[in-house]
Every structure is written in structure tokens, then in C-alpha cells.
Design a protein around this nucleic acid. Structure first.
Length: 595
RNA sequence: GGGGGUGUAGCUCAGUUGGUUAGAGCGAUCGCCUGUCACGCGAUAGGUCGCGGGUUCGAGUCCCGUCACUCCCGCCA
């Protein structure tokens, strides 16, 4: 109880009948019958209906109060008639008979209505975020986010982790995303960088002898936004552990996510023991390293089929001869689908910038397997049977074929998998399907330069006999590097780190860094690892994306309190903004004006 | 950096083949209404059709440019 209220707007019920109470909140909605006025009063917790009739002298004044005014009502809890009970409200069995009121905060005319299910443009929502956040759906999302973070902290502490904080002003790192830079006044011409992640610090924490680290860590990357990627800043559940292999980390994360998702969602978890899929398998079966396992469709490789003489699909045959590959998606029991179903998918594929998806359906006539559809007759019975064997297709199933270089085929079929599943409505929306993607390659070919580069984190531990790595074939080396994926969304990646300096020099030299440049660029890390570093590893699931999944939202701004727009501007606070000439002078900075 | 979508009243949107004074719902203002909970009824106000240029007798509508928002590609070790 405070001077403003005896109860919140969500707690009064039939047991309080007759009590004199005081409530404070916003005028959510008025229903004015001329001689009788209902006001829905709203606060963070809920809504309570307040009522006044014309006999009361205050009626005329209260009638005029605009929506979203902040007001305090004194009144009496009255039981509602049976037929006027509102089952939608927790307080729906009672109402407050207004005795007195006090206006605590007035409002101008609203730029956007608060009480409405309408959708509004992002621009207006972000500019008036404080109004937008009053609306029930996003208000709930933000409170969910708070509860999720609190739950994670408690769980992690239960598992024996301690939260350690790391610097926000740190040094610019040579690899990875663009840094946000902060000029140093005391060191003219030099810059701090905001951390892209506390990657090096958490390793240093392990080297410092702390054993189990976590942090709800802010991360800053100056890269372009997406629906599921805030520009500028986001949060990770950063985790690092000493004396572990990757299964120890999997166990912690699986336990945490199972508990978290069970607590905050009614959806089922497909496999509580998350399946482990190797990177190469994932690229073959799903065309991507973030597969949506709710989708039962799988991709198979049929390149060999097009080397046969009894397959007369000239375009593909020729392309295969030139080195292209053919992969396919089988859809079950689609022989009765109308022609438009197939043509739409082909048309869609062409829209995606590919040469389209060829298709046909397996049928049986006179006990002989036949291909039906535009290109069906180009395949002999034997070829059809071979395809069915490889793709596990049955009579009545259809097959969609893509032919191009490996990367293009993977990319097209990965999105085609989503598209076809959506059209067939075979994705169970009431499911969370987690998986681990493991065995990432240590290196890859840089397409632009043709040189070998690290495919992920250069600090990852390579797999195999460390004294006998095949450095002549770097592309064959796999790393203890892993991702966790849920419903096709990449939640995070992690790795067992390389804590052996000599090995690190070797691995860096493959990617074209000599000892001197490694010492220069990663001096802090290398130096620390040289004084007794424990084996260690970790992971860092994205908090924003976890909350998105739990809130069933597709856009990260729906779970972020004060997000920036796509151009990394805060329309409410007007950031970024010009600064005073004097501020620049102190920082020894000149602005170069673009023409 | 590139591609798509959108831009009309405070908010959400309609606007036909280019043709009279640009409409609706919500909100605002005023009036009526004692059991609503998306209360109801009536009236009034509210417009640089994102901005600039062009075609045309005539442009919200067609063309060119530009800006803003958004989605995607690139990018995000």
C-alpha cells in the first residue's frame, strides 16, 4: 500500500466486496452511457472496471477525462450482477464504485491508440515507444524477457556457475564484425572498441583460475540489421568452463534449455536429448547449417543418376558432365496434388534466381515404375527404381530436382525445403526442435582470394592427434566447434578453445599469419595462454532469440524494449546525433564531410 | 553496397480506365443515451495524397528522380 494505491488493478475479487480501496493507473477505455460511465483502469498488472453514475457530482468531470490519463480512484468494491460478470478479466467479478478521483498525469492527443489490436508502422511505434510499450502484447513480451533472464541466472547459479562482468571499453579486434569505436580523450588519436562478445575475456577468466563463468553479456557489432538481428547491440548468455570437452558443455546447455522452455512455453520439445548432426551431413540433408528439424523433408544427392544412359534429361546430363551436382527433395503422397502445386514451386524457385526445380511423380503401371509429369518419361524404370532407392521414395511420392554447383544447389534446396513444407503444411507449429551442429571444418577456401582462411573461430581446438595434424590438407581438419539450432534459428555457436600456444602458431600460419603478426594481433590471448592455461571451452546462446522463440515472435524488436530501427537510429532518443564542436576538439576528432 | 514491398486524415486503410468538391473505421470535439466491457446513436472538425520534376485540357492514379520505413542478399570470426 502506498499513498497512490491500496491494490493493483489485477488483484481485487469477490473477497474484497465492500472494501474501500484506492487504485492508480491509466484510463484504458471509457464506455459512456450518458447517465452511467464505465472506466477500465489499467496498470502493469491488469485491468479493473470502475463505474460512476450521474447522481454523483463528479460524473461530469470524470466523463471528460481522455484515454491514457493517469488517474487515482478511491472507491468501493462492488459485486457485479451475474449477467454483467466479465470472465476475460481477473477482476471481472467486481467493479469499483467511484467515490473520488485525482488526476496524476494528463495527456495530449495520442499519436497512436494504446487500446487496439491494430498494427502500426515501425516508425510511429519506435518514436513513441513509451506508448507502444503500454500495449498488452509487447508489455507481456518485455516482462517475459525479464523473467527469462532471471530464470537463467538462477539456473546457472544452481549448476555452479558464477556471473563475472567484463569490460565494455576494450580494444578493437582484427577479425570478425565491424567494431563500434569510442575515441579516447586521454590518448588522442586512439580508440576503444565495444566488445563484439567477451570472447577473449572469458578465456582469460578461465586462465585466471575461475572455473565456471557465465554472463548476460551485451555484445556490439556494427553490422546491418535483419528481422532477427538488432543493429548495434544484443545480449548473449555467455558461458565458459574449464577442464571440459564438448559433451560437458552440451549437457549444461541441454539441461538449461529444457528447463527454460518447459517453464515458459507449452510447446513440446521434440528431442530433450538434442540430436547431433555433423556440419557436412547437415549441408547435404538440409542444405544449411541451421536446419529446421520440425520439417520432415530431407535432401539427397542424385548426381550419379545423371551419368546413366537411360536418363535422357539432357540439360542435367550435360551440366553434370561439366561438374554440376544434382540434389533432390521427395514429397510424400503428392501424386494427387494439382498441377498448380508443382508449377507454383517451380515458379517460386525461378523467382529465387535459380533455373527452377524440375519435378515428376512416381507411379506404377502394369507393374512397372514410371515417372509421371513434365520430365517423368525421361527416366527409365530402372533409373526410377534407383532414384527411389537412394531417396527412399515410394509410389505416389514426387521428387523435385535441382542442378547447379554445390553451393547454389545447397542454398536453393535449403529454402525450397522451407517453401515446400509450408505449402504442404507439414511443419508442427507446436514444437521446439533443437539440434547440435558439430564437426565444423577448421578452415575453408576464401572465394574472393582463393586462400585458406579460418571458417569460424581461430581459437578453436582442432580435432584429431594434435601432434600429428595434417596441415598439408587444412580443409580436412575439423574443429571442436559447434552450433545450437532451434526451429531453424541459430541460437549460438561455441567451441572447445585451443589453449596451446605452439599449436595456435601452427594453425595461424596455415591461414597466412606468421608468428610476429599473431603476437601483435592477439598479444593478450597468446601471452596468457603461455602461463599455464587449462583446457576450456564454452558457448553463448543469444538471449534475444531465446525470448523470440518463447514469445513466438518473428521480429526481435517485439522482445526488445528500446530497439533501434534498421538504419541503427533510435527515433525516440534521436541517436546517433551531432555533437558539440568542443566535444570533438577534446577528442582530437575532425569530421570529414561527404560531398 | 544491391534487390523487393510500402508511403493518402492523429492511427489503420479504400480510392475503378487519368475525369466533378479525395472516402471509411477508430481516435478527437459537441450532443443524446443507467449495465457496458470493441457499448450504441447523431453531428462537427481534421488532407502539401512522402518530397521534387515531367507527360496531359486534367495526375492520389502514368513516367523520371529523390527521401523515409520495412523485408531480403551481401555482411554478421
Amino acid at each position: 500500500m502506498t499513498k497512490y494505491r491500496t491494490h493493483t488493478c489485477n488483484e481485487l475479487n469477490i473477497k474484497n466486496e465492500g472494501e474501500k480501496v484506492s487504485l492508480s493507473g491509466w484510463v484504458n477505455k471509457k464506455r459512456d452511457h450518458g447517465n452511467l460511465l464505465f472506466i477500465d483502469l489499467r496498470d502493469n498488472y491488469g485491468i479493473t472496471q470502475c463505474v460512476i453514475d450521474k447522481k454523483n457530482d463528479l460524473f461530469k468531470k470524470i466523463e471528460k477525462i481522455p484515454l491514457e490519463t493517469v488517474i487515482q480512484f478511491e472507491g468501493q468494491v462492488v459485486k457485479r450482477d451475474k449477467n454483467t460478470i466479465n470472465k476475460e478479466l481477473n477482476t471481472g467479478e467486481i467493479e469499483i464504485k467511484i467515490i473520488n478521483f485525482k488526476i496524476l498525469g494528463t495527456t495530449k492527443e495520442l499519436p497512436l491508440p494504446v487500446f487496439s489490436d491494430q498494427e502500426y508502422s515501425e516508425e510511429i511505434r519506435l518514436k513513441y515507444r513509451f506508448l507502444d510499450l503500454r500495449r498488452s502484447k509487447i508489455h507481456k513480451n518485455i516482462n517475459l524477457r525479464s523473467k527469462v533472464i532471471s530464470f537463467i541466472r538462477k539456473e546457472m547459479e544452481k549448476y555452479g556457475f558464477l556471473e563475472y562482468q567484463t569490460p565494455i571499453l576494450t580494444s578493437s579486434s582484427p577479425e570478425g564484425a565491424r567494431d563500434f569505436l569510442v575515441p579516447s580523450r586521454l590518448n588522442p588519436g586512439k580508440f576503444y572498441a565495444l566488445p563484439q562478445a567477451p570472447q577473449q575475456f572469458k578465456q582469460l577468466i578461465m586462465v585466471s583460475g575461475f572455473d565456471k563463468y557465465f554472463q548476460i553479456a551485451p555484445c556490439f557489432r556494427d553490422e546491418d540489421a535483419r528481422a532477427d538481428r538488432s543493429p548495434g547491440e544484443f545480449y548473449q548468455l555467455d558461458i565458459e568452463m574449464s577442464f571440459v570437452d564438448q559433451n560437458d558443455i552440451f549437457n549444461v546447455v541441454e539441461k538449461l534449455l529444457n528447463n527454460l522452455f518447459k517453464k515458459f512455453s507449452n510447446k513440446k520439445i521434440l528431442n530433450e536429448k538434442f540430436p547431433k548432426i555433423s556440419f557436412s551431413d547437415s549441408m547435404l540433408k538440409y542444405g544449411t547449417d541451421k536446419p529446421d528439424l520440425r520439417n520432415p523433408l530431407e535432401i539427397c544427392d542424385l548426381t550419379k543418376i545423371f551419368e546413366r544412359d537411360d536418363v535422357k534429361f539432357e540439360i542435367f546430363n550435360k551440366l553434370v558432365k561439366k561438374g554440376s551436382i544434382v540434389r533432390a527433395i521427395v514429397t510424400k503422397k503428392t501424386n494427387s496434388k494439382p498441377r498448380s502445386f508443382f508449377d507454383n514451386i517451380d515458379k517460386w524457385a525461378k523467382n529465387e534466381g535459380s533455373s527452377g526445380l524440375a519435378y515428376f511423380t512416381f507411379e506404377k503401371e502394369n507393374n512397372k515404375v514410371l515417372g509421371k509429369g513434365p520430365i517423368g518419361k525421361l527416366f527409365s524404370t530402372e533409373a526410377c527404381e534407383e532414384i527411389m532407392k537412394i531417396s527412399k521414395a515410394e509410389i505416389g511420392d514426387s521428387i523435385f530436382l535441382a542442378c547447379a554447383n554445390k553451393k547454389e544447389v545447397e542454398k536453393l534446396l535449403s529454402v525450397a525445403r522451407d517453401k515446400i513444407a509450408k505449402d504442404l503444411e507439414i511443419i508442427d507449429q507446436n514444437l521446439f526442435a533443437f539440434c547440435w551442429i558439430i564437426d565444423y571444418p577448421m578452415y575453408e577456401n576464401d572465394e574472393k582470394t582463393g586462400k585458406i582462411k579460418f571458417s569460424h573461430n581461430p581459437f578453436s581446438m582442432p580435432q584429431g592427434d594434435l601432434n600429428n595434424l595434417n596441415l598439408d590438407e587444412p580443409l580436412s581438419i575439423k574443429a571442436y566447434q559447434y552450433d545450437i539450432v532451434c526451429n531453424g534459428i541459430e541460437l549460438s555457436s561455441g567451441a572447445i578453445r585451443n589453449h596451446i600456444p605452439e599449436l595456435m602458431y601452427k594453425l595461424f600460419s596455415v591461414a597466412g599469419y606468421n608468428k610476429k603478426s599473431v603476437d601483435e594481433k592477439f598479444s593478450g590471448m597468446i601471452n596468457a595462454l603461455s602461463y599455464g592455461a587449462p583446457p576450456h571451452g564454452g558457448i553463448a546462446p543469444g538471449i534475444d532469440r531465446l525470448v523470440m522463440l518463447l514469445a513466438n515472435e518473428k521480429n526481435i524488436r517485439e522482445v526488445t524494449m528500446f530497439p533501434m530501427n534498421q538504419n541503427a537510429q533510435d527515433l525516440m532518443m534521436n541517436a546517433p546525433s551531432n555533437v558539440d564542436e568542443n566535444q570533438l576538439k577534446e577528442l582530437s576528432i575532425n569530421i570529414v564531410k561527404k560531398k
